[in-house]
Design a protein around this nucleic acid. Sequence first.
DNA 1: CGATAATAGTTTATACGTAAACTAAGTGAG
DNA 2: CTCACTTAGTTTACGTATAAACTATTATCG
Lengths: 159, 159
Amino acid sequence: MSTRLQHELKKKQPFEVAEQAAALGLVRTNDQLQIHFSRLFRQFGLTPSQYNVLRILRGEGAPLPILEIADRTVTVVPGITGLIDRLEAAGLVKRARCDEDRRVVYVALTSKASKLLAKLDQPVVDLHKRLMGHLSRSELNELTRLLDKVRSGLPESEP
Amino acid sequence: MSTRLQHELKKKQPFEVAEQAAALGLVRTNDQLQIHFSRLFRQFGLTPSQYNVLRILRGEGAPLPILEIADRTVTVVPGITGLIDRLEAAGLVKRARCDEDRRVVYVALTSKASKLLAKLDQPVVDLHKRLMGHLSRSELNELTRLLDKVRSGLPESEP
DNA sequence: CGATAATAGTTTATACGTAAACTAAGTGAG
DNA sequence: CTCACTTAGTTTACGTATAAACTATTATCG
């Protein structure tokens, strides 16, 4: 796997390679991690996106408008509708129209979702440790810092 | 959100939080980068997955069996079929049955694809620099090293 | 040699990401 | 007040990720 990456990098001299290598490494690493998390969530009947939405709602501790949820995930607006649809069909969230502004739809966790999240907490932490545990504390901190720095300098996404 | 939970989390902080922070940073950063790359590729009529397949074929310099391509992308087997279907419909690849082993389907780049890739090379490099250029060379190298280390210690994906 | 297993790939079904076009409800200028 | 504008959300359409079941071909074992 990394042999291919090395190979690819060799072809393009020392100029733009540093940026490219970092970006490719990021994509590849993310892909690998996603495989493991997808598997874990699937064992509990969830997709990564669904888990993400539930986590956001739990973190907020109160119902949120649909578009606010879409903002906090990277989910684009149209995608959020079906996502919430399926969560509602699974009995994990409830929709409720706002009375003051009838355009707004609030989404709230059900107690079923709270219990499911609670059951997932330990396995999620365990998986994080299993996937990242071979890095030292200072390496993890440095990685986090560098990733933050990458994001901080990114051009604006909204056109 | 009881006090007990908060307390519980605080106690765990020094331990598994570093792993979690790094993993979350990775996912978020990747999401942000993907947005920009998707946009660039779309301007050339490609999706990120399609570009990835074309790059792999160019890197190899020769036709590859479909499942070999699937292996090198993170694409799962059934997904690769439609991906190649659409690339073929767009005139960017050709399928060819292997004569020795008639189960195998080789996929080859067309000249149209080679030209398209050539046109994309500079914009891709430019985008990499635009997205990652605010990190110093040594930061980029360190980031790449850490990402490689994450992948090197990952548990096997194949069950 | 023939039944059986393994391999390469496709089909089917569900979920998600994304853009474009649409509906419904609130806002503001004349 | 009313008509244009904005905002919240949904529908539609296409590409992709994934698992499960299926076809076709080759390999293997008894």
